[in-house]
Design a protein around this nucleic acid. Structure first.
Lengths: 348, 348
DNA sequence: CTGAAAGCGCTAACAC
DNA sequence: GTGTTAGCGCTTTCAG
């Protein structure tokens, strides 16, 4: 009996004694309505608590004002900061967000994800899953045959694909320049898992910086971690053995750096005196590590915002999946936040 | 010209030489279709890459298999862990997620949020914003006149309202019992912002535990923080002055505890020898603080999962916003993770 | 300025 | 087994 359902445009029209068209005009702010008619309809809408159905609109307009967001690893701070940027930018632009989270970073069966999103008529997709292993193989495969624009985050720039992200290589160079300037000579590296593109970029920066300064980057000088503090601690143990001259470490993220600090503590090593340390990400806690951690700051929030803007731009330009994208590859720069863990020089 | 659009059921029907109805039967796995007809249609669907429109389905079935999720503070780990639980449970149950994030915890203009969600015909709503200040005043107000079930997270259980969350009071009691058992006598408290319900619960546990053990809980013995490490450090400074006998602190969350550790370090206080410390939340880093932090673990992920299950249960029971809810108030228990920061006794 | 008719993509209810 | 008709709630023609 339709007991408690939201009122429809028909009911409003009936109550106001007009046709549904006229109501439609009013709710869409169209000019061609007599002032008093408009007034009457507005009142009726108010009384009935009428709200147009975005669903019905999407269907007929072939435009949903909804963006699909695919993410992974939300329990970690990086992805959720990006999502945070996405939500606020989407809200501002008047878009709703349909969220999908992959169970694993390296999930490669992406077809059902796209189907879920497309069957709900999203106008565009933001792929906010970091590039890990083979999880980008399907990009550019015609098989997918996407009919809506898509922007990828945190992946290697590619032909005909819109991407946005932070320049991890640049960030790594910042970290390394700083350590070298501070007079550290034997700089080790603890990398993230190397199937991550971002981890490889950070490591490449380490290597390049050493080589350009006439140093070597041998295998005993670095260890691969898995982003966790525990892995950072382990890696540190191994580095202390394999690379005894080491006087500084550029660590792939702040959590692993925390593990290093713990080990250094236990060994009685002074940071920054005996060991310089630079992390990556600038998690809120890093300012309160003992000692406070120098780290590379990435504006993940901004990445999310930029991604939304790009996507909407592509939507508005009427891209249809036919012609190649005027492919933007947006790379944001990171900045270095210098704290105690890397400053040996008495500057004050 | 309809150049690059997803094929419709009509096109499939035409190509397969049947009516749309028959195609509908096939894609809905209905029995009444001749095997060879079904086969033919399936092939056509494959060839055309046809995908039914969830939008059109939602419209006619008055059921969208979509849940609205309202969150806030995604840049923090707590909310995003909950969201993580929500996504995985929703995925499992075959529901899509429409995500809204409030710009502030205490945003009180919730009407547009509900409108955005309801206009997209969500079947239910999960309000994953913690209860802060007056941000729950509108609950139970008939004005909202919700037509779909809604489950609230992290709020004080209330009549006729479905809620889910972790029992913060219980968690606080765990922390306090442990400290008392470890022989700490003068236990201070650093609370979260007291307009947060969760902060008040944790503090109430501190107070009750002291009183039940015959101690006082005077104003000099606690300070209000704002969840940040910086505020924790400040609060610790003040406590050391106002409550010099203090030999332990129950801190409202792990980040603030980190601030306390920093200050204690600088003052040369030994943890746990001179000062016992228990935090709350069990953020991944806390195991690597120096010393490793004893803390109360909350399964935020599970909260998200439970919320989804509750919401779907309500949806399936055909709740329509008329009768009061068979109001479930689900309270999960937390557990204590004992690490070095609170263990004075030599047990090994 | 306003309304009638058609239809977005799909399914419910009924016919045959 | 299969097709027809109607309609979900809205907007887009096009008439008046």
């Amino acid at each position: 009996m339709n007991v408690n359902r939201r009122p429809t445009i028909k009911q409003v029209a009936k109550a106001a004694g007009v046709s549904t068209q006229t109501v439609s005009r009013v709710i869409n702010d169209r000019p061609d309505v007599a002032p008093d008619t408009r007034e009457r309809i507005l009142t009726t809408i108010e009384q009935l608590g009428y709200q147009p159905s975005a669903l019905a609109r999407s269907l007929i307009q072939q435009r949903s004002y909804t963006l699909g967001v695919v993410t992974a690893g939300l329990q970690h701070i990086g992805p959720s900061r990006t999502l945070n940027g996405i939500t606020s930018a989407a809200e501002e632009a008047g878009y709703a967000l349909l969220l999908e989270e992959l169970p694993r970073y390296d999930a490669d069966d992406v077809v059902p994800i796209f189907q879920a999103l497309l069957s709900r008529h999203v106008d565009g997709i933001i792929w906010a899953v970091p590039e890990v292993g083979e999880n980008r193989n399907w990009v550019n495969q015609q098989a997918l045959d996407l009919t809506v624009p898509i922007v990828y985050l945190a992946m290697e720039p590619k032909e005909n694909v819109a991407t946005a992200g932070v320049d991890n290589y640049h960030g790594g160079r910042l970290a390394m320049s700083h350590l070298l300037e501070e007079g550290y000579h034997h700089i080790g590296h603890i990398s993230g898992p190397l199937d991550w593109w971002e981890a490889r970029q950070r490591m490449a920066a380490w290597k390049a910086a050493l080589q350009e300064s006439g140093r070597e980057a041998r295998d005993e000088q670095w260890v691969e971690g898995n982003w966790s503090s525990a892995s950072g601690a382990q890696a540190a143990e191994r580095l202390f053995e394999s690379y005894p001259e080491m006087d500084a470490i550029f660590v792939g993220n702040d959590q692993m750096a925390l593990g290093v600090i713990q080990v250094a503590c236990q060994k009685g090593l002074k940071i920054p005196g005996d060991l310089g340390l630079v992390g990556f990400d600038n998690i809120p806690e890093s300012a309160f590590f003992c000692p406070a951690l120098t780290t590379v700051q990435q504006d993940q929030h901004l990445v999310g915002k930029v991604a939304v803007e790009e996507t909407i731009k592509m939507i508005q330009s009427g891209w249809h999946g036919l012609e190649p994208v005027a492919s933007q590859s947006i790379m944001l720069k990171s900045t270095l936040v210098v704290r105690q863990s890397s400053v040996r020089s008495r500057k004050e």
